[in-house]
Design a protein around this nucleic acid. Structure first.
Lengths: 208, 208
DNA sequence: ACCTGAACACCGTTCAAGT
DNA sequence: ACCTGAACACCGTTCAAGT
């Protein structure tokens, strides 16, 4: 409406507004991201996303090949957000500890997004944008170990470090740590610190 | 048909055979378990399970309140199988190492079942049978630490130990360990050993 | 008791059509 | 180009009914 009588004959200018948004794509990703945390990935229907974005149930197919492609975009955004959190955390007094903690806290703050990002649902090969965003995070994780990544020991150390934050994140968000284990735990931050401390020193009681 | 003229008036005996199986419940769980590994939990439809069990799409509701209840039974069976693997592994030269390895190998052998068992889909509160099977596995995991479980350090050690096998399992089955990290890895068993070794000694390079 | 077929309100996806 | 409505083949779940 704003440009209904623009001067140029074919320069319809930007934002015709005759049809919906100029950036339905972004709106769909944002809507799906918001819905994901509330409903869970299983209950996230493409039709419902379209409904909340005020377009027909079919409009998303202009921007995404299918439901998985939309979820892949959501996951890619998630990886970019995680990368930002980790970047910020590098400024902490103990950078490596900070990054590990940021990883676990990200999972706790956005559990379903974390589940989508790392779950088996999306085949990264099919979505280059997602693969790129993932690789950035992975490079971040590997960075402290890259000097010696050629050594098998360093690789094992890197995998162990990643495993522990990844496993702790999963156990926490899936509620697998029962009340007995969490007894006396005031805040999660302290628990994460304790677990990372003991992991750094070596899993004492596990040695035989 | 076989017992249509049985002597006792109301003792219809076992296996009337007039209708399908006497144990449709077990058949449904077995069918669903088999389908789960092939199709994944998302693509597992109750109607398809019924079809493969040669009953109407509605028959499962005689034995399970809904789709989730059937999945809960599948998951409970999974926990019992995991408990058996871990029991066997206790006989290894290094019991704790053996149990941890058995945990990761179980995930690798039955990735979708593992995902269902530990994923966020099933609320354990709703399924007592599932909760019991889970608790047995958890007790197993906690056992080596129970002497000192009251100490915060021992709890942190137990959570760290569990986190590392759980995280490694997830990273492996979701294919998150890229080729660069897996370079030179002949068999997974060796990788698991290496990671558990370094975890036992302490995450060297991660100390700052 | 255990099973069935029809029905309801949803899906994801495709297609022919509208501006 | 971008959006729409109708249609197709599926779901999970419920219900009234059959033996």
């Amino acid at each position: 409406m704003s440009t209904s009588k623009a001067p140029g004959p074919k320069r319809t200018a930007k934002r015709p507004e005759t049809y919906h948004h100029g950036d339905l794509e972004r709106v769909l990703v944002a809507t799906a991201t918001a819905m994901l945390e509330r409903e869970g990935a299983d209950n996230l229907s493409l039709r419902e996303v379209a409904r909340r974005a005020d377009v027909s149930h079919n409009a998303p197919y202009r921007h995404f090949a299918d439901r998985d492609a939309l979820l892949a975009s959501v996951a890619a955004e998630g990886f970019r957000a995680l990368a930002r959190s980790m970047t910020d955390a590098r400024r902490a007094a103990r950078p490596l500890r900070g990054v590990g903690k940021a990883y676990v806290l990200f999972a706790l703050e956005r559990p379903r997004l974390f589940g989508l990002m790392f779950g088996p649902g999306l085949k990264r090969g099919a979505y280059p944008d997602l693969a790129a965003a993932m690789d950035e995070v992975f490079a971040y994780l590997a960075q402290p170990f890259t000097d010696t990544i050629e050594s098998a020991d360093a690789r094992a150390a890197m995998i162990a470090a990643w495993s522990i934050v990844h496993g702790l994140a999963h156990l926490l968000i899936d509620g697998r740590l029962g009340p007995r284990l969490l007894a006396g735990t005031q805040d999660v931050g302290g628990l994460i610190d304790d677990v990372l401390d003991v992991a750094g020193r070596g899993l004492g009681p596990t040695r035989e």
